[in-house]
Design a protein around this nucleic acid. Structure first.
Lengths: 131, 131, 131, 131
DNA sequence: GTGGTCTAGACCACC
DNA sequence: GTGGTCTAGACCACA
């Protein structure tokens, strides 16, 4: 797994985790990988994974059974949506529109980018399912 | 000037500077405030301003005359647009659409947010011009 | 370590670093000394070392893993050679020949100086290995 | 006139001045341009030219008649050669060979560069005399 | 432990 | 006056 330099690694892992929840890869009460396993898999320090799990636990998305492992909370998907949506609507969206405006781009320009984005995604998914 | 805690101050200063360029407050070949003056004005350490100016200089947005001061580059606005646009189109836009998609939001939902954003901006501007 | 007064210390550190790369003391993907360790070793302020490392990172010669340290880039030697060679061939060499010409010196004169230089170097190396 | 960023402007002016002496453009006891005239011509601050002239005067290359102007010293050319040669032989040449060695270049490689340099100079001179 | 950032204050060369 | 550099020391997030 590759990480960007502009954000803490443990948060990037959390982002990916949230994606997986929303995409239905992990469902309510599913057991998620152990700290050690995940650390090996994505090649980061175990402490970093611990920080991710603590972060997600504080958000109520996962919970921990002592000596057993971490599990997706019963309302994990709702909590995930709440987490992402709050940040998206109140922070990302306004910032996005601000930059859009500075660059003299309109919502219609976005429509064009959106078409491109969707066709790229389709291509990627086809390739993935072909693998 | 107030700063957020999620990004280095010197980068937030740089962002504001880019905005000012795009809004036409500073034009090509204009002399910009000296390191010391700006430091006093926005209440940060001179070294922090130095870091901002070096950063902008590396991006080709400003240049410096020894012992005279910093100036907006002749193609400063183009460089600024290039800097912002590159990051926006290739990083922010795709990430934005990705989150949008995860949250099951459509471009039409964005249109609603955009109306809200614009009306907020108008209110703000009216307040500013009233001050 | 001793420094000349005609060039910024952080650049002299960078020069020494480049030499070490080219002499094979540090190889691709080697971890280089931490900012603090190097600062202590060569008796400069940690901030000065930071400036050197940021400079080398921008040149693509080293890279950094968050919370771990700095490492020589995979193509660190190539980047180093590119950096030195570009400046040497397009700036230093022509300036050298220009001065040579002004002083009425020929390449054959240089050959004499070169012999002297090499014998001095040999003497120095013998002394070093004797130490 | 254009200046590099890696050396003080007053020294770059002094260098050009020395070249002119060695190329015979200014001869012993010639009057050289006034501070003001030269400052206008090469577009620098008059104080900078003053600094150049003081520097050259300290080296014995020019002298000053109060209220009249600056003149090339009787032994100006010898002093100029002495100045350049000292720095060249003891500083530039060793540094040049050091970089040459680090880059694995031989004196024979220099011979190639020298041919290129000379042919470029010839082209330039032909163009100048055609103007 | 690591690097990243910031403050405070100093000295310097330069224009 | 200007920017460039350096020191000293601090705090923080991160691995």
């Amino acid at each position: 797994m590759e990480f960007r330099g502009d954000q803490a690694i443990y948060l990037q892992i959390a982002d990916t985790f949230c994606e997986n929840i929303l995409l239905g890869k992990w469902k309510a009460l599913d057991r998620i990988p152990s700290v050690r396993d995940l650390a090996v898999e994505i090649e980061v320090n175990p402490n970093t994974v611990v920080k991710t799990y603590i972060f997600l636990q504080e958000k109520g998305i996962i919970f921990n059974k002592r000596g057993v492992g971490y599990f997706v909370a019963e309302d994990g998907m709702e909590k995930t949506i709440a987490l992402l949506k709050e940040n998206f609507v109140y922070t990302e969206v306004p910032r996005f529109f601000k930059t859009m405006h500075l660059l003299n781009l309109s919502l219609d320009d976005m429509r064009v980018y959106y078409q491109e984005y969707k066709s790229r995604e389709n291509t990627k998914n086809q390739k993935d399912s072909a693998d």
